[in-house]
Simulated scan of single mutants.
Amino acid sequence: MLSTQSADIVRATLPVVGAHLDEITSRFYSTMFSERPELLDGLFNRGNQANGEQRRALAGSIAGFASALLANPDERPDALLARIAHKHAAVAVTDDQYVIVHKYLFGAIADVLGDAATPEVIAAWDEVYWLMGGALIALEARLYAEKNADNGRTWREWTIVDRREETPDVFSLVLRPSDGGPLPEARPGQYVSVLHRMPDGIRQIRQYSISGGDEHTRRITIKRVRGTEHTPEGEMSALLYATAKAGDTLTVSAPFGDVVLTDSDRPLVFATAGIGCTPIVGMLNYLAATGATRRILALHADRSRAEHALWQETSTLIARLPHAQYVVWYEEGDGGLPGQMDLTGLEIPADAEVYLCGPLPFMREIRAQFLAAGVPAKDIHYEVFGPDLWLPAD
């Protein structure tokens, strides 16, 4: 895939480029948004820009893709590309935006590396960029075609038909297409994007897992992110918590996401924490509705029963599944096992497929426990809310 000459240059320069990637991506975003501020309106998440997560995710994906090309020159890193493509399609990235990103990214590379950014070095990394960009454009085109959309035109108006309070900070919105048309196809575990105008007039996008629904509606479940001394309040979640009500309309994308339930008879293990339960509840709804007989071990950790969103529904779904078991941990110990999730003493079904969702530190820890229990890495799937900072290490 990567020419021999470019591969030699990329291999030689990867350490210096990697060492400066944070500075390069910081310069890239700063310059691009300074000259193209309209990109912050309805495309880039300014919360992730402020906390640096988007910058770190971009740096990690570039380094990860380049390293994969060098390690396996005849293979394309499809797992990395698929995750990025779904994230891009969910926010309606278009082909022309790859040209814009290229301009500012390579301007930042030249500025930061200075004399080290020779024409040969720039040409080699340009080849890396367009191998990655071209593959993503093709994957995203396929995703859009599956949704009968043209280059990102997946947005649609939906009406809130019900709002349900799940916990003091978690609420569900039941949505129906405002045009009365059919629901777009969704696979269990996928998410949708919500495009909403903020009080200052700028539109922002956030992703929410599909936690349930029926033949006419879809349900998303949202946790209000409270601000702390060190972190800001969640911009979208706080606004929807305060204002969203039945009768309102929301602009919502088609469903996307590559972490979906497989069609097989293999046992399933779900391990979630906090609001990470939402895609798994969507999967459990599907399994119960289709009369699944797979062996299921559902594990969840939370602060307390009062803060455990959808726990009653989850318990009911587990009871409907003939070979399902539900184990919960609560830090406050009220109604579940005390403390944090611990696989010690649990029987992990042989040949199980494992799905993780929750805060990144939780997923790192519990993934390590599954690996220690003998579950192959290829059978452990995970979903991340926001930029995937874990991709390079996966």
Results as ranks from 00 to 15, higher is better:
P359D: 13
H308V: 03
K378Q: 14
R305S: 14
Y382K: 02
P359I: 15
Q312W: 12
L360I: 15
R320I: 00
P322A: 09
G282R: 03
Y330S: 02
L337V: 03
M363Q: 11
D342Q: 14
L299Y: 04
D302F: 03
W329V: 02
F270V: 01
M283L: 04
T316R: 15
L371V: 08
D334G: 12
V327I: 09
F270E: 03
E331I: 00
M283Q: 05
I318V: 08
P361C: 04
W329R: 04
C357D: 09
L371R: 09
L371W: 07
H381W: 13
V354T: 05
G276C: 10
T316I: 11
S264W: 00
Q325H: 15
W329K: 03
F362W: 07
R303P: 03
R295Y: 02
T314F: 01
L321I: 00
Q340S: 12
T278R: 07
R303E: 13
L337C: 03
Q340N: 10
T344M: 02
E365Q: 14
G335Q: 01
Q369K: 06
L310H: 13
A368E: 15
V354E: 05
D379R: 14
F270Y: 05
Y326E: 01
G345D: 06
I348A: 09
P349D: 05
L337Y: 06
R303T: 12
S304W: 10
G374D: 09
A301V: 03
L268F: 08
V281I: 15
Q369A: 11
G345P: 08
L297E: 04
G274K: 05
V354C: 02
T272C: 11
V269G: 00
K378M: 11
A350V: 15
H300Q: 10
L343M: 12
R367Y: 07
W311T: 13
A273M: 08
A319P: 05
I296N: 01
